[in-house]
Simulated assay, not measured.
Amino acid sequence: MNPTKQAFAERLIAAMQAMGLEPKPAVLEREFNQRYWGKAMTLHGVRRWLRGETLPSHEKLLVLAEWLRLQPQELRDGPEVEARIRKAKARWDEGVGYTEREVFEAFLKLPPDKRKVVREVILAFAKAQNPDA
């Protein structure tokens, strides 16, 4: 079984239980179809979500997330993905000072062919500094 789909099913079940609902296909089908304006989901279709056999489309994921009061990415990917992204963004924000931002702004104003040259120079310096990377 696909671990991504299985983890989604576990989060879906936990979210339904947190709302005080039984994680049963009939309950999910009824609640989902009351909120979704597209073609109704079948009992078999929602059962496959709960069993970790399939993932909902993005449109359906948005409906589920709103109903379950979760961020769509948290429901689909779990909170750890968002935490890793936040950590990487914080590292970038903390590590870049005024002078670096000034250089980045100047870089972004260059035409594409000049950016390519600057990029190659920077990567060459980085490789010379850390040849094992």
Rank of each mutant, 00 (worst) to 15 (best):
H44T: 03
A40H: 10
K24Q: 14
A40I: 03
P3N: 04
M19T: 08
G45F: 08
K5G: 08
P23L: 01
M41Y: 13
R30Y: 07
G20I: 04
Y36L: 02
W37M: 11
R47F: 05
M19L: 11
W37H: 12
A15M: 05
L21F: 13
Y36R: 02
F8E: 10
R48S: 01
R35Q: 11
R11C: 12
A18L: 12
P25L: 03
L21W: 15
R30G: 02
P25R: 02
Q34C: 09
L43A: 05
G45Q: 10
E31F: 12
K39Q: 14
A9N: 06
R48W: 00
Y36S: 00
A40C: 05
M16A: 06
G45N: 08
P23V: 00
P23D: 00
R35M: 05
L50C: 03
I13L: 04
A7G: 15
M41T: 03
G38Y: 09
E31P: 10
I13N: 02
L43H: 11
G20C: 05
T4V: 12
M19S: 10
R11P: 13
E31D: 08
E29P: 00
P25Q: 06
R11A: 10
I13P: 02
G38K: 05
E31W: 13
A26G: 06
H44N: 05
R48L: 00
L21D: 03
I13T: 08
Q34K: 15
A18W: 07
Q6R: 15
V27T: 08
M41Q: 12
R30Q: 06
A26C: 07
T42D: 06
H44S: 07
K39M: 12
Q34G: 07
L43N: 06
K5D: 09
A7V: 11
Q17G: 00
P23K: 01
M16R: 05
T42R: 10
Q34L: 15
V27L: 04
A9Y: 11
T4H: 14
A40N: 08
A18D: 12
L12P: 14
G38H: 07
Q6Y: 11
K24E: 14
Q6A: 15
M41P: 03
A14V: 06
Y36G: 00
G38R: 04
P25I: 01
P3W: 07
A15H: 06
H44G: 04
R11V: 09
A7I: 12
Q6T: 15
N33H: 09
P25F: 04
T42I: 04
M19A: 14
R35D: 01
A18N: 14
T4Q: 10
E31V: 10
R47K: 09
R47T: 05
E29Q: 05
A15K: 02
E10D: 15
R51V: 03
E22W: 10
G38A: 09
E10I: 07
A15V: 01
W37L: 13
A14D: 11
A7R: 15
V27W: 03
F8D: 09
E22M: 13
N33S: 11
L21A: 10
V46I: 00
E29M: 05
R51Q: 09
L43Q: 06
K39P: 14
